[in-house]
Design a protein around this nucleic acid. Structure first.
Lengths: 211, 211
DNA sequence: GACGGATTCAAACGGCCGTTTTATACATCC
DNA sequence: GGATGTATAAAACGGCCGTTTGAATCCGTC
C-alpha cells in the first residue's frame, strides 16, 4: 500500500471521528507511518487531504443509497420505507468490525461533524450526500400521504422519520450512556428499525388524515 | 459588571457555539475586554471557567424544565406531552433576540458539542441535564401506553419523541440550508410542535397496541 | 554507471495555544 | 503613611500547529 493510500485511510479514520479541525496532520502521518511533509507533497495540504476524504464519503454514501436504501418505483411505499429505515439504522451496526468498504458509519460521523462545525466543503456534502436521501424520502412520504412533496406536512413527516433514523446512525456519546443496553445487539437494532417504521407509519397516516 | 462576570458571559457565548476545544482563552478575553491572565486568576484555568459555564447551563435547564416542560401529575398525559414538546421546540426560537436568561438554546448547543466531543464534565452534564428529561418522558410515555417505564417499547418511543424535538432544538448547520423556509417563523414553530405531538401520539398508540 | 524525476526525510519556520511570571495599580486597615 | 491583599497588565514560557525548505534516497532509463 502506497504512502498516499495509507495517508488517505488514516485521514478517513481520524477526520470522521474527530472532525477536520480537531485532527492534526502530525496525527494522521503518525498513523500512516509517513513523514509530516507527505500530506503537503501528496495532497497539497491538510484541506486537500480532507477534500479526498469527503469525495470518498460522497461516493460511499451514493453507492450505499442506490444499493441498500433506495428501491424501485414499483415497490410499495410501505416496503420502501421499511427498506430505507432498516438500511439507515444498520449503518450504525458493526461500527468497528466490518471492513472499510462496507461500513457506512464513518460517513455519518463525518457529516455530523460538518453539521456542527462546517468546513468550506459543507455545501458540497449537503447537496451530494444529504439532499438525495431527503428528496427520496419526500417522494416516498408524499406517496404515502397522497399529496404533493411540497406540502409542509410532508416536510415535517420527513423530518420526523429522518430524526429518528439519525439518532441511531449519528455519533452521540450521550446515547451510549443514557440508554440501557447500548450499544444495541443485532436483534435490538432490528427491533429499533421495526419500531421506527411502525411508529412513523402511524404518525404519517395520522397527519395525512388531519384537515 | 465585573471582569469575572464579563468573562463568564463571553465564555457562555463562545463555548456553547464552538465547544470547549475550539475556543481559545484569548478569544474569550478579547470578547470580555480582559487580560489573558484573567481567566487563570478568576477561574484557575480554562477548564475552571468551562466548569462555571456548565454549572450555569445545568441550572438554566433545570429551572426551565420545572417551569416550562414538566407538568404536575394530575395533568392528563396527552396535555403533558403537548407542553413538553412545545417548550422543547420553542427553545430554538428567538435564538438571537431574547435576553440571556430566557433563552435556552445555548444550553442545547453546549450539550450537542459535549455529545460529539465530550469533556471530563460530560457525565455530570448527562446526569444533571439530560437524564431528568428522559425519566420524565419515560414516565409520561409509560402512562400513555399503560405499561412499565422499563418496557423496551417505552424506551424506543422516548427515543422517537426526543429525536424529533432535538432536531428542532439542537444546532445543525445542514438543517438551515437543506429545508426550505428555515429558520422557522413563530407560526411554523407552533405547527412543528403540533405535528410532533400528533405524529408521536399516533405512533405511541400504534406501538402500545402491538402485541 | 550516470542521469533525472519522484519520493521520503529531518529540520526549521512563523503562529497560536494555555499558562506562568513579574510588576503595577488600588482599595482597605493598622 | 506604610503594610496588606486584591485585581489588572505586559511579557515571556514551552508546546503543538500547518507548512516550507533543502538534502537524501529511490528507481526506471539511457
Amino acid at each position: 500500500m502506497t504512502t498516499r493510500d495509507r495517508l488517505l485511510k488514516a485521514a478517513i479514520a481520524r477526520f470522521s471521528e474527530h472532525g477536520y479541525r480537531m485532527v492534526s496532520v502530525r496525527d494522521i502521518c503518525a498513523d500512516a507511518r509517513a513523514n509530516v511533509a507527505a500530506v503537503n507533497y501528496h495532497f497539497g495540504g491538510k484541506l486537500g487531504l480532507y477534500r479526498e476524504v469527503v469525495n470518498a464519503a460522497i461516493e460511499a454514501i451514493r453507492s450505499a443509497s442506490e444499493s441498500a436504501l433506495f428501491a424501485a418505483d414499483d415497490v410499495p411505499p410501505v416496503e420502501r420505507l421499511r427498506q430505507y429505515v432498516n438500511a439507515y439504522v444498520h449503518t450504525i451496526a458493526a461500527r468497528e468490525k466490518t471492513p472499510e468498504r462496507e461500513r457506512l458509519a464513518w460517513v455519518h460521523d463525518l457529516m455530523a461533524h460538518e453539521s456542527m462545525e462546517p468546513t468550506p466543503l459543507a455545501p458540497w456534502i449537503a447537496e451530494q450526500a444529504l439532499m438525495p436521501r431527503l428528496r427520496y424520502l419526500s417522494a416516498l412520504v408524499a406517496e404515502l400521504m397522497r399529496c404533493k412533496p411540497s406540502d409542509p406536512r410532508v416536510t415535517r413527516c420527513v423530518i420526523s422519520i429522518q430524526s429518528q433514523c439519525l439518532f441511531y446512525a449519528a455519533p452521540n456519546k450521550f446515547r451510549d450512556t443514557a440508554f440501557p443496553g447500548w450499544p444495541l445487539s443485532a436483534a435490538g437494532l432490528a427491533a429499533a428499525a421495526d419500531h421506527i417504521v411502525a411508529f412513523s407509519l402511524a404518525g404519517v397516516r395520522r397527519v395525512a388524515r388531519a384537515r
